[in-house]
């Protein structure tokens, strides 16, 4: 008896899911761009709220899919915010993406359960902020590094924890539901 061992993914469903996640990410990206200047952050730096979507998709959509969503969101940012502001956010985003991939897929920390998505989220937020700071310094050519660093590190713990807990609670359910939807 021949049984196909690989299930074909329900493509239309997959596309819808990509769509929903991308729009969520874009939505969050837009909302955070409304905040004029975060106290104690360098001008142009953002909170990195859309990273939570990317992280979520990394847990069940895999690297390629998440990359797509990340690029979609970044393209939107580029088109609406202008090149220079985009560069800072994008550097942060790339760093956060890379770190999240490493933590989730490579190495034992997450896989063996030493840290949860909250930990990944915190580290990802920290990298996001540090990369934004570095980008700001390079782009403007001035050195405000030391002035902003402490606040940005602290802020990443706070934001990372909040988004991390939300992810901890929601990711498993999303993963299951998504699996059911995609592999039908």
């Amino acid at each position: 008896m021949n049984k196909s061992t690989k299930q074909k993914p329900n493509y239309p469903m997959l596309i819808s899911i990509y769509g929903i996640l991308s729009s969520l990410a874009i939505c969050l990206s837009y909302l955070e761009s409304l905040i004029p200047q975060i106290p104690f952050f360098p001008p142009g730096a953002k909170l990195g709220l859309s990273n939570v979507i990317i992280l979520l998709s990394l847990t069940f959509l895999g690297i390629k899919g998440s990359l797509f969503i990340f690029l979609a969101k970044s393209l939107f940012a580029l088109l609406t915010r202008g090149v220079f502001a985009f560069l800072i956010g994008f550097s942060g985003g790339v760093g956060a993406f890379a770190v999240s991939v490493i933590l989730l897929y490579v190495g034992r920390l997450y896989k063996r359960g030493y840290i949860s998505l909250a930990g990944v989220s915190i580290i990802s937020a920290a990298v996001f902020n540090v990369f934004q700071l570095i980008a700001a310094v390079i782009v403007t050519g001035t050195n405000f590094l030391s002035a902003y660093l402490p606040f940005m590190l602290f802020a990443s713990v706070v934001s990372g924890l909040i988004t991390g807990i939300i992810l901890n609670l929601s990711a498993p359910t999303v993963k299951k539901s998504a699996a059911k939807l995609i592999l039908r």
């Binding site: 840290i115 949860s116 930990g119 915190i122 030391s146 660093l149 402490p150 590190l153 901890n168």
Partner: peptide, 27 residues
């Protein structure tokens, strides 16, 4: 209950510590 593991707490504490250290070393 919120899914937080030992490693998470350690990471959070390290970063908070780092932020305070950065504060001391900033001009």
């Amino acid at each position: 209950k919120a899914g937080i593991k030992k490693g998470d707490v350690i990471i959070a504490l390290i970063l908070v510590l780092a932020s305070f250290l950065a504060l001391l070393y900033s001009p």
